[in-house]
Each structure stands twice: as structure tokens, then as C-alpha cells.
Computed example of a mutant assay.
Amino acid sequence: MDGERHSAGNSARRRWAFLLCLLLAAIAVAVVSTSGGGKKAAPAPAPTVGEQLRGQDTAAKLPGVGSGADYNSAFDTLSARCQEQGASLGDEVQAVLELLQKNGVTDENRLTVMQHLAATLPAGVGQQQSCAQAGNAYVTKAGQHP
């Protein structure tokens, strides 16, 4: 009788062990499937300054909004010619547009401001100039030709 009890006890322990293993396996599968296998999606890259400027033109419903590539290209060209860089150059473009609008110029947007400013500055390595000064000169010139 002891052998039967011992055998029945081992059988019950084996069943519990088996059920415990199944439970642990189910938990592991649930954790892996909800966490994506430990892999997290890469965060979206931050928008470039050119893309931010385009977004502002789009939000303001200004005429002549170009593509994101147009804005990035114009910003890159202007960056190569200006002492100001990155966000501070974006701020200069914004300031020039605001001054133009204050002076009654309504056919400009951030893209055209970047294109016009770049056209007034020399291209070439070591030739970077102050875009703030170029912007002031552009605003003055544009104000003379309504």
C-alpha cells in the first residue's frame, strides 16, 4: 500500500509540475508577444528645420508651399552661405518673413525667403555671411518695390 501511495503521490506531483510548466510557458509567450519580442520600434526622426519651416507655411496657409524636398534643399543652400546655422537660421528666415508681411508683402513664404536670401549671398567655402544682415537688406529692398 505504501508503494501505491508513493506512486500516486509521484503522479500527482508530476501533473502539478507539468501544469506549472505549461503555465510558465504561457506566461512567457504572453510577455514576448506583448513586448514585441523585446524589440522596440525606432523613434521617428525629428523633422529637419526645412520640414519645420514647410509645416509653418502649410499651417499658415501661405501660397506657393513646395515639397519637403524643396524646403530642405533651400535650407541646405542657405546654410552653406550663412554664418547662422540650424534653428537660429530658421529663426532668421521667420524674422525676415514677418518683417516682409508687416511691410505689406503678401506673396512670400519661408521657401521663397530662403531662395531669395541665398540668391543674394555668394556661394563658396569660407564665404559665409550674416543672414541677419542679408535679411535686413532684402526686407528693405522688397519694401521699396511693392
Rank of each mutant, 00 (worst) to 15 (best):
L24M: 14
L24W: 08
A25C: 13
A25Q: 10
A25H: 06
A25Y: 03
A26Y: 00
A26G: 15
A26P: 00
A26N: 11
I27T: 11
A28D: 02
A28S: 10
A28P: 00
V29W: 00
V29Y: 01
V29H: 00
A30P: 04
A30H: 05
A30N: 07
A30T: 11
A30M: 05
V31D: 01
V31A: 11
V32S: 03
V32N: 02
V32Q: 03
V32T: 07
S33Y: 09
S33C: 06
S33H: 08
S33F: 05
S33M: 10
T34H: 10
T34Y: 06
T34R: 13
S35L: 11
S35E: 09
S35N: 14
S35I: 05
G36S: 11
G36A: 09
G36V: 13
G36Y: 09
G36C: 11
G37R: 04
G37K: 09
G37P: 07
G37L: 08
G38R: 07
G38Y: 07
G38M: 09
K39Y: 05
K40V: 15
K40M: 09
K40I: 13
P43H: 07
P43C: 10
P43I: 12
A44K: 15
P45N: 06
P45I: 09
P45T: 13
A46L: 11
A46G: 05
T48W: 01
T48H: 00
T48D: 00
T48I: 04
T48G: 03
G50L: 04
G50P: 02
G50V: 01
G50D: 04
G50H: 03
G50N: 04
G50A: 02
E51P: 02
Q52G: 12
Q52C: 05
Q52T: 13
Q52P: 01
L53I: 09
L53P: 01
L53C: 02
R54V: 03
R54T: 01
R54H: 06
R54E: 04
G55V: 08
G55T: 09
Q56R: 15
Q56A: 15
Q56D: 09
Q56Y: 06
Q56L: 15
D57Y: 10
D57H: 08
D57R: 10
D57G: 08
T58H: 12
T58M: 12
T58F: 12
